[in-house]
Amino acid sequence: MKIAFVFLLVSFYFSFAQRSGFNDINFKKADSVAEIHKGESLMNLPVLVYNLTAPLDTDVEKFRAIYTWISSNIENDYSSYVKIRNKRKRLVNNRQAFLDWNNNITPIVFDRLPNERKTACTGYAYLVKEMANLAGFNCEIINGYGRTPTLLLKEDSAPNHSWNRIEINNIWYICDATWSAGQTILEDGNSRFEPDYFDGYFLAEPELFAKNHFSINKEEIQLNDTESFTAFIEGPVIYKEAFLASIIPLSPQKMHVYIKKGDLVTFKLNLPDNFKEDKFQLLINTGGRQKTIQPNILRNQDEISLLHRFQKTGLHDVHILVDNDFVVTYVVKVKNAR
């Protein structure tokens, strides 16, 4: 069954700016302010927002304090996520009903936050919006799909995620406070949340963000270019560490690569000009046996190509590593040449 939503794309993310525009800003003071007010009540949001923003001079620092406070003080509630996910599944074929329900559920989720201090992505996005609005920012919720290494999607998958766009100095940026907050660990049917603030989704690189976020907010899509939902879910798996280094996979465009024995595969990535290529390795897992290799490397300014020739047939999980951290995964299926 195909998804009934009309998907245009995420290349509307190219209309967003990225955090590098604030390279001259030191966020230590904003983070310190957020830390000072750790654990404060949500019962009076205007007071909390004032306490977080008043000591800071620039708008981006003010939003930074709000964002880091939310991501460091709100627990991700997996049981709430499951309930919302199941409802989304039931409405997957009725776009308008889904949007109406989603708009109605967010205030309800938000009402529980002051006492419970935990929520699903809907609550994070709503809280970011409310607190940013109180600080004078134009901030909106984006609904759609989030794709992670442990959450792969199919064409009939229901929307499963919410995040935000924020206007700072008349320029729009994107962020995901849910994924900055930490991770949910599932063990023996039980879930537990491990708080661990991650900075990579704060004013994220738009082109990279589009690799694991897909919006269904039609009014936010700009038709500069389009990409289908199918192309989105077929792309390589992106790990959060790619966001810290701003490493963007360019090709192959699909996670599953089909070749013949002896073929050379080129994994091309975009990266910062000053990034050292000797940080890269390939970890290849074949039938449970894995090895780390140093690929042949070609560098052209802000692009790097990692080349490897596959001499054995079979299914190979190819993980691109940077300083031993996973950043991208492909699956290469090698058949006998005929």
Rank of each mutant, 00 (worst) to 15 (best):
F243Q: 02
A204H: 09
S41Y: 00
S305E: 08
E234F: 14
R64W: 00
G189H: 01
I171H: 13
F209S: 07
E187I: 12
P159H: 02
A245M: 09
V327H: 09
F193L: 11
Y258D: 12
F209L: 06
Q294I: 15
K154I: 10
L134H: 02
D273A: 15
S191T: 07
N86M: 10
E277V: 14
I84D: 01
E167G: 05
V82Q: 07
Y239S: 13
S79A: 10
N102Q: 05
W69E: 02
D156S: 04
S11Y: 09
N300D: 12
I25L: 04
F280D: 04
V331R: 13
N296K: 13
F202E: 02
M255H: 07
R112I: 10
P249S: 05
N104S: 15
R165I: 10
T230K: 03
L306T: 11
I216K: 08
S71H: 00
Y239V: 12
A245W: 08
D273S: 08
F326W: 15
E155D: 11
A4Y: 11
V265A: 09
D100C: 08
D278G: 08
S41Q: 07
K29E: 06
D317N: 11
E241V: 01
N103P: 06
G288L: 08
F5D: 01
F7N: 14
E207F: 05
N190L: 14
S41T: 04
E227G: 11
I84C: 03
H308I: 09
P159A: 15
A245I: 10
C121A: 13
E155Q: 08
Q294T: 15
V237M: 13
I168N: 04
Q281S: 13
N133P: 05
A120E: 15
E75H: 06
Y201P: 05
Y50K: 08
F98H: 12
D24C: 04
E61Y: 00
L223A: 11
V328N: 01
Q183V: 15
R289E: 13
L271F: 05
H213I: 11
I221V: 10
T68Y: 06
L113T: 06
N324K: 05
I174P: 06
D317Y: 11
N217C: 09
R90H: 11
W163C: 10
Q290C: 08
I185C: 00
S71P: 06
S41C: 14
E220V: 01
N285D: 14
I174M: 11
Y239T: 07
K83P: 06
W163D: 08
S79G: 06
N164D: 01
K218M: 14
H213G: 09
L321T: 02
I36C: 04
T150Y: 15
